[in-house]
Each structure stands twice: as C-alpha cells, then as structure tokens.
Design a protein around this nucleic acid. Structure first.
Length: 213
DNA sequence: CAGTCGATTCACT
DNA sequence: GTGAATCGACTGA
C-alpha cells in the first residue's frame, strides 16, 4: 500500500531557506495549476537552483530590473520569464526577501489533467514528453507572465500552488551541471533530478549562438 | 538607441 | 547533429 501524496500546501518557511537546500527538497512535490478548463497536476522530477547575485548564471546576477524584480521579493512566489521569443519558464523564489535566489522547474510527470496538457503539447510523442524541459513544462501547464508573482503557498485552489506531495528520498536524487548555462555559471552542479525517471530532460551544455548577417 | 543573445524547442538531414 | 524560429530585455555607447 502506497501512501497518498500529502495535499497540504508547502509553507513560506519551506522556501525561506538557502536555495541549495530547497532545490533538492522540491523533487516529488506536486505543482497544481488551476485553469478555467480544470486542474492540472505535476510531480516534480527535475529542478535547477539559481543563487541570486552570487551566481553568474542567474538573471539576478547583474542588477535588479523590471524582469527579475519578483526574485528579490519574498519567497514562495512564482517568477515567470519569457525567452527565445517564444517560451516561458517557471521558477519559485527562495531565501529571505532580498536574496534573489530561485529554483527553475525543469521537468515533471503529469499526474492529473493530462488531456488538457496534450492539447497544448501537440509535438509531444508520448506522455513522458509533456513536461520534459522547462519551456515544455510551462507550455503544458499554460503558464505565462500573467502568473508572474503568484503566491504558490496561498491556497491549493489558487491559479498556481505547490503541495507537499511525497518528497523524493535523497538517495534517489542526483545532481550535476545546469543545462544550457553559459560561462562560469556552468560549472556549478546545481541541477537536481530523480534517478532513472523517464520524464527528466537530457543534459545539454551551453551552445553559443552562431553569428548572423 | 542599436546590437546582442537568451536558464529552449522543433523540424529536418 | 545542425540550424531556424522569434522578440524583448539588457548592456554599453
């Protein structure tokens, strides 16, 4: 008999810790996305930590701007950004206010509302690919900048929330370099994933863009 | 204010 | 494995 996942929302205190503590602790948690068409739920299998102003790979490395403002705010809120002219990525803010650290939610297993996600992820060849990668995850859950700043600890009925779920045991957590992170930031082994989970995205080193014109 | 490039994904060879 | 798609934020002049 397997215990049902805990549906209690994670507390603000959960996120009010150093980001390198929070990140591996997020694996196995349940992300809830309440849409007008119904709820979607996802069990997290892969995340990456971004350590604010100390981290060359972080959006908060240089300065506080309109885009990264939410990262400087209180923990337990969603930071959503737009990239490559077409994709969104979802992060959860960690550490005390002003720390500007966060965790990128990179992949997970859809555990509810798969039919809703398939309509948005037409290129997915199977259900393992529905949320395999940060932009795919955001697409599957219909997450865009309208959700930037959402408090994910507030209520399981809010547009975006995170529940305690069943934390992945530490002996099933692996870590290594972050995907697609350039320069000095690429050396930190701050990507965490669930071992042998088929929904985890493949590792890819940073690829410098080829010159145009 | 123009140039550069991105915490990526997809189609195609 | 390679290259295109696509646009807005950020940087530096």
């Amino acid at each position: 008999m397997i215990a049902a996942p805990d549906r209690t929302p994670l507390t603000r205190d959960f996120f009010d810790r150093p980001v390198l503590e929070v990140a591996p602790d997020l694996l196995g948690r349940v992300l809830v996305r309440n849409t007008p068409e119904g709820p979607i739920e996802l069990r997290l299998t892969e995340v990456e930590a971004y350590d604010g102003p100390n981290d060359p790979g972080s959006h908060a490395y240089r300065s506080r701007t309109a885009r990264n403002d939410v990262m400087f705010g209180p923990p337990g809120h969603a930071y959503v950004y737009f990239t490559y002219g077409m994709w969104h990525c979802l992060n959860l803010v960690c550490g005390q206010e002003g720390t500007a650290s966060g965790v990128l939610l990179r992949a997970g297993e859809i555990t509810k509302g798969a039919d809703l996600t398939r309509k948005r992820r037409l290129s997915a060849r199977n259900d393992k690919e529905l949320a395999k990668g940060p932009a795919r995850l955001a697409t599957a859950l219909d997450v865009d900048r309208a959700l930037n700043g959402t408090d994910v600890c507030a209520s399981p009925d809010s547009p975006l929330a995170i529940l305690s779920g069943t934390p992945t045991p530490r002996d099933q957590v692996r870590n290594g370099p972050r995907t697609g992170v350039a320069g000095e930031g690429g050396v930190h082994p701050w990507r965490y994933w669930t071992v042998n989970d088929p929904t985890v995205s493949p590792y890819r080193p940073h690829a410098p863009r080829r010159r145009s014109t």
